[in-house]
């Protein structure tokens, strides 16, 4: 209960500060733009994140299946390498393949967000204690039941850590999609830098920053809802 209340309190204060800034500072000049771009921004983020979570967890589960056991180490190496690739590079490569606009932006974000989720799902499921799986087999559960009732719930802590990282990367990279024609709050920031207009720059930067912080807390709260109390390592 405590956590949810503090989250609500936090979000409320964030909103109040945001709207106060719009009302009382020169940021207000750009109110229309801010709200429009914020909307665009959120659509992109939510779309790419949702796809990334669905595909990421699915791929992660598939990769963790015993059939692929021998390739497991190689796969891990590949992932460890791919998460080091700078997100700007990923966007740039997306643009070179898909051109400019909304689609390459979402695809680029999707790929950048995908990798930590696949990796953590893979690691998390492999880390589930073999004795629990043996107990489940011994009870007569089939592989699917074991996956759904035992493996995934017990891997959720690690999976959500991956999701949290992925969402952070997504939000951090989202402003950059402006550079490849994707729109969003980046427009205010980059234009503000180029044209040397401080209020515009700040409008973009502050809104982006606040969105990022809010999203981070949101994912955290969601994780506490989904992860069974018996699995999370910290006490309530």
């Amino acid at each position: 209960m405590n956590r949810y209340l503090s989250f609500l309190f936090f979000s409320l204060s964030l909103f109040i500060v945001f709207f106060a800034l719009l009302e009382y500072t020169s940021m207000g000049e750009y109110e229309e733009d801010i709200l429009y771009l914020l909307n665009e921004h959120i659509v992109m983020v939510v779309t790419s994140c949702s796809f990334a979570i669905v595909f990421g967890i699915s791929f992660g589960v598939i990769l963790s299946r015993p059939i692929l056991n021998k390739q497991a180490e190689n796969i891990m190496q590949l992932f460890n390498m791919s998460v080091t690739i700078p997100t700007l590079a990923i966007l740039a490569l997306s643009m070179s393949f898909l051109g400019i606009g909304f689609l390459p932006a979402v695809v680029g974000l999707f790929i950048a967000t995908l990798l930590p989720i696949i990796k953590n799902t893979f690691v998390g499921i492999n880390a589930v204690s073999p004795s629990i799986i043996e107990a489940a087999q011994g009870m007569g559960m089939n592989s699917f039941q074991i996956l759904i009732k035992v493996e995934i719930p017990n891997a959720l802590y690690v999976i959500f850590a991956g999701i949290k990282t992925a969402v952070a990367i997504n939000i951090g990279t989202a402003p950059l999609v402006f550079l490849i024609g994707g729109g969003g709050l980046g427009e205010l920031i980059f234009s503000g830098i180029d044209l040397d207009i401080m209020p515009m720059l700040l409008a973009g930067a502050i809104t982006t920053g606040m969105t990022a912080i809010f999203a981070d807390k949101l994912v955290y709260i969601l994780s506490t809802i989904f992860i069974s109390r018996g699995v999370s390592p910290t006490e309530d």
Binding site: I171, P175, L176, A205, T208, G209, D216
Partner: peptide, 9 residues
Amino acid sequence: TIPSIALFG
């Protein structure tokens, strides 16, 4: 948590 370009900004 703050995106890099925003922090630069």
